[in-house]
Design a binder for these strands. Structure first.
Lengths: 338, 338
DNA sequence: CTCGCCTGCGCAACCGTTTGCTCTGATTTT
DNA sequence: AAAATCAGAGCAAACGGTTGCGCAGGCGAG
């Protein structure tokens, strides 16, 4: 690989001059600059990231921590959407993204923080992870600029999908269609789940609707087996609900299959709704009623906030940005008012 | 950040000794090694990736080029699956992955190859992209170790999902259920499409089944609008097919909706099948018959091949690895033989 | 004519690591 | 006892690029 030295030799100027010429410093004459540029092109010069980073202590690199229980969050539609949007936003601004290695199999693996320091990432975005893990806390509490998604840490920027309002809207919608016996299979305990439960009860409380405890059950996110089983239980109750809300669109499929298996129709016999707005699910008839999370906006805001924090740490406001979702009315909630 | 120099000062030994001690060179006494390790821990030493990379000319970094028409391939279930598996495999072996910047919005953006050289990636994996783009060709034909997925370049390693056999199996299955009038809405021209068309005709030819040309139509991948329209056309034909095969599971949804809209039942009135095996689709009743692509295996093989090419360039065989898919029998193909 | 300023470029240090070679003192071999 | 070997540690250059400072020459102004 051609280096600055090669160009300097070719042009008969110093390495410093070459560097300045290529970086558009003002103290280089137009003539020299052109000669240098030409030589660079001829020699196939390629700047060296490592050398530059070593000297400037800036990498223009962002570390990404998207970890699912199973593996990375890549196969998780919601997070894949967020990441996709995040990626394209930071790339537009000249940042590159690298995954923070989360392999457990490595002989002497680094902690997340160690890995970040090693690479010298300018900032980090975290999502879809066990936020309680000590390793995550260590990273978040370091001096590295960090933005978290869907989880709030003290004194750190967080981008939050508005789960409270979203769930309230969804529940309100069900109530407005005349449903009173609404069951809610929610996800495992987490920031997100808590918010949605809050939203759920906020809606029912406001209308004075009392939801029996056995209607509200925790199941795993993105798991059809759990929802299948719990749905069967709900359907076999003496006082069966008229409407079942699921942790997410995918998990809803388990419920839908259970309902069909019992010979019941959706929405005539039983109404259902999901959460997320996964295209592969809501595009299919009967269209699932759900709450569409604005993954594009979430990723974009996360990216912009993080870059701002990196480039203007003083003036960047540390805050929780809440991104609203939108109720997506499908055809799986029956109108009982007619 | 503490550096080797800090440790050397603390321990009263040279920087070289510290480096060797931490890297387990054999010419350092156990005593010194221990003292160094202790000091490193105390000072919170973190190795510097850039310095190391600069010196050794090795980054242990892999560049990833997963570009969709829309944006990255992250929201594409198939590629997300492949990438996820790829990621975890290389991470287990101590490699990190960074996306090759494909933003078009950057003022003076680098070409893919320039970006790869800049970062000094040890290798590159390419998928889900317009393989005809000159920039991609430039990258592939460089001296950088490269593995492509689902596309063959001359003299380069390629990991291929076995689309020929997969499609043959699917078509055979339809034929075995007594279907003769099989329509195939395939994707836009590409390596993958060509392979599947080959597979399709191989199956029909073998059984001496003649497929009218108007039964075979190109539509976009992962697009429900196109398949919706084309399905309506097929259904309105005088001699309507009994079975329609779609470019992929997601695109199949458009067809399914069109069929339902015409008041037809699946599979009683018309049979359908997809391709890919997207969980959010095939887990729903009636389960879509499809071909499950082995994303896990594809990603893993791509990773292992690439790492082998990086670490043992001499002995690594340049070949096309073909990964079979599996027919997933759902409930959307009617049995006409009974 | 002299002074000061501006323009254009080079000097040299430095970023943190790695590694081949050298040096020293001790131990083993003959 | 002299020579050869060896373990353990340091020296110093090198990787490629950046940047504050200094310096020379040309110019206009006083």
């Amino acid at each position: 690989m051609a280096s600055l030295k090669d160009i300097s030799r070719q042009c008969g100027v110093s390495v410093a001059t070459v560097s300045k010429a290529l970086n558009n410093h003002t103290d280089i004459s137009e003539g020299t600059r052109e000669r240098v540029r030409k030589a660079a092109k001829e020699l196939g010069y390629s700047p060296n990231f490592s050398a530059r980073a070593l000297k400037t202590n800036k990498t223009h690199g962002i570390g990404v921590l998207f970890v699912d229980e199973a593996r990375s969050g890549l196969t998780h539609d919601y997070f894949a959407g967020v990441l996709d949007s995040f990626k394209s936003t930071v790339e537009d601004k000249g940042y590159d993204i690298t995954f923070i290695n989360c392999s457990k199999k490595q002989p002497n693996r680094m902690t997340f923080l160690e890995h970040v320091r090693y690479h010298g990432f300018d900032g980090v975005v975290i999502a879809c992870i066990d936020f309680g893990a000590p390793e995550v806390a260590e990273l978040v509490q370091s001096d590295i600029p960090v933005v978290t998604i869907d989880h709030v840490f003290n004194n750190k920027i967080a981008i939050m999908s508005d789960n409270i309002t979203g769930m309230t809207a969804l529940t309100d919608y069900c109530i407005s269609k005349g449903h009173k016996k609404i069951a809610y299979l929610h996800g495992e305990p987490s920031t997100v789940t808590t918010a949605r439960l809050t939203g759920f009860y906020r809606a029912t409380d406001k209308k004075g609707i009392v939801i029996p405890d056995e209607y509200v059950v925790g199941t795993k996110y993105r798991d059809t087996v759990g929802t299948y089983k719990e749905t069967l239980k709900l359907l076999k109750m003496k006082d069966r609900p008229t409407c079942i809300l699921y942790p997410d669109d995918f998990a809803a499929l388990g419920g839908i299959n259970a309902i069909r298996e019992m010979g019941l129709r959706i929405p005539e016999d039983i109404s259902v709704a999901g959460y997320d707005g996964i295209k592969a699910i809501i595009d299919r008839e009967p269209q699932l009623t759900t709450v569409l999370q604005a993954t594009d906006l979430i990723g974009e805001r996360a990216a912009k906030k993080l870059i701002s924090l990196i480039e203007k740490p003083k003036t960047t406001i540390i805050e929780q940005v809440v991104i609203p979702g939108t109720l997506k009315e499908g055809r799986t909630i029956a109108d009982l008012t007619k």
